[in-house]
């Protein structure tokens, strides 16, 4: 029953109702959502959006959601250069603002940084101050990517200076360096650390409160499938999608 309810909710949203949930809605055959919806999404959304996309496809038979996950800044550049995207979900407002064709972005989730360390935290890292040691290898995201910008804000707030060995192009790359054991720690989103819980431990630190990322999503002006794009953006607001995001470690906006 829940499935049907969620599908209905999507349809209601699509029709512009704005309500996130409507258990009373009557069954409808189709709201005209068909074809392929192309979603460009920040790398940190990889796991949750993949799940949400599958759900969306189930609710809307005949619809396919294809994702392109990468660093938000790379995606923004691609979209500005004419990449055929219908929806853009960024890990920071800055990258959304860079996309000229985004139509009224809305924030759908928040994320915050943790310190990802090897399983069992062998170096005993407890906070940002523990990352300044010269014998410690730290990977950060490049400043242009949201996780890099957030890391910068957080370290400033903590009043520490971290000298990383590498500036990775997206949060997943930074995390994989921890997974592989090439670095001892990395500042990544809580969601990413959670997705990789089998390989890494997450160390929370207070300064991350100062650097919380808003995740905006928007339909793009040039969308080839505007109806599908609207439907997908609306679906992100449903309880079911929110549940997936929360499960992944995102906070509600």
């Amino acid at each position: 029953m829940r499935l049907r309810a969620a599908a209905l909710a999507a349809l209601v949203l699509l029709s512009g109702c704005g309500s996130t949930s409507d258990d009373e809605a009557t069954p409808a055959e189709s709201g005209g959502v068909t074809g392929t919806v192309t979603v460009f999404a920040a790398a940190s959304l990889t796991e949750s959006f993949t799940t949400i996309g599958e759900q969306f496809e189930q609710k809307n038979p005949g619809t396919t959601v294809t994702f392109s996950f990468a660093g938000s800044s790379a995606l923004a550049t691609q979209i500005n250069e004419g990449a055929p995207a219908d929806v853009f979900a960024s890990a920071a407002p800055k990258n959304m603002d860079a996309v000229t064709s985004a139509v009224t972005p809305t924030t759908f989730a928040k994320n915050q940084l943790v310190i990802a360390v090897a399983k069992g935290n062998p170096k005993g890292i407890t906070g940002l101050a523990g990352l300044t040691g010269a014998d410690l290898k730290v990977a950060l995201c490049a400043e242009a990517v949201p996780c890099g910008a957030a890391a910068e804000t957080a370290t400033e707030a903590a009043g520490v200076t971290i000298t990383p060995v590498t500036l990775e192009q997206d949060v997943k790359a930074a995390l994989s360096k921890v997974k592989l054991g090439e670095v001892d720690a990395s500042l990544v989103y809580r969601t990413d650390a959670k997705a990789a819980a089998a390989d890494v431990d997450a160390v929370e630190f207070p300064e991350s409160e100062k650097a919380i990322n808003d995740y905006p999503i928007a339909v793009l002006k040039e969308a080839k499938n505007p109806v599908g794009a609207q439907a997908f953006v609306a679906y992100i607001g449903t309880d079911e999608a929110k549940a997936v995001l929360t499960e992944a470690g995102f906070q509600a906006p």
Binding site: G71, S73, A139, A142, V165, Q169, K177
Partner: peptide, 21 residues
């Protein structure tokens, strides 16, 4: 990895510059 002056070669610099918009 990618760190200016140590491992950031031209192609990496190109990529990073493009990444930053």
């Amino acid at each position: 990895g990618n760190f200016p002056g140590v491992t950031q070669t031209m192609p990496l610099a190109v990529y990073q510059t493009m990444e930053s918009g």
